[in-house]
């Protein structure tokens, strides 16, 4: 329908073909196209080629870097796995050592405390014995002191004048008879 409208709109009186341009137009158009393509090939192609090469190199570099990074990551991962293994064994060793030390400290502490308790018991027993003996001695001394005081008081009370004179006379008689 549209084509028919277009064909119907063409002026049949025109000399050039409805499809092909005029020869001159083809020549000029062709030359212009050649000049443009030539210029593009001469001036644009090297720059485009250079940009493509640079991009290719950049991409290649990125690929290489990625490969290197991946290799490094693989290496690091291996190291980490190895280290993790070492850490686990070190942890186990440290825990075992700590357990052994704790057991030794506990055992030593028990022995020390047992010895200290025994020593304290012995000292307490000795102090109790000493205190008992001291109390006994003090009691005996106090009894002796009280007895002596009571004896002195009783003797003083019993020493009347007659007894005093008898003692003096007895002394004189004894001394006089001594030699």
């Amino acid at each position: 329908m549209n084509l028919s409208i277009f064909l119907a709109a063409e002026d049949p009186s025109l000399s050039h073909h409805w499809l092909f341009p005029e020869i001159g137009e083809i020549i000029y158009g062709g030359l212009a196209s050649l000049i443009i393509f030539g210029a593009l090939f001469k001036f644009g192609w090297p720059a485009a080629k250079k940009a493509l090469e640079a991009r290719t190199a950049k991409i290649q570099k990125e690929l290489d870097d990625s490969a290197a990074a991946q290799s490094q990551a693989d290496s690091d991962a291996a190291s980490i796995r190895t280290a993790l293994g070492d850490v686990a064994s070190e942890r186990a060793r440290i825990l075992a050592e700590a357990d052994a030390q704790a057991a030794a400290v506990l055992s030593e502490g028990r022995a020390r405390i047992t010895a200290e308790v025994a020593d304290m018991e012995a000292r307490a027993t000795a102090e109790i014995d000493a205190a008992r003996a001291r109390s006994g001695d003090e009691l005996r001394a106090e009894i002796a002191r009280l007895s002596a005081t009571a004896t002195t008081d009783a003797v003083r009370a019993a020493l009347d004048d007659r007894t005093q004179q008898e003692l003096i006379d007895g002394f004189i008689a004894k001394v006089g008879a001594a030699r």
Binding site: Q164, I168, V175
Partner: peptide, 19 residues
């Protein structure tokens, strides 16, 4: 402890001299 009589003193002097 108590004072001596003169007689006791005399006897005591003799006794001590003897002793």
């Amino acid at each position: 402890a108590v004072a001596l009589s003169d007689a006791q003193k005399t006897r005591l002097i003799d006794a001590l001299a003897k002793a």
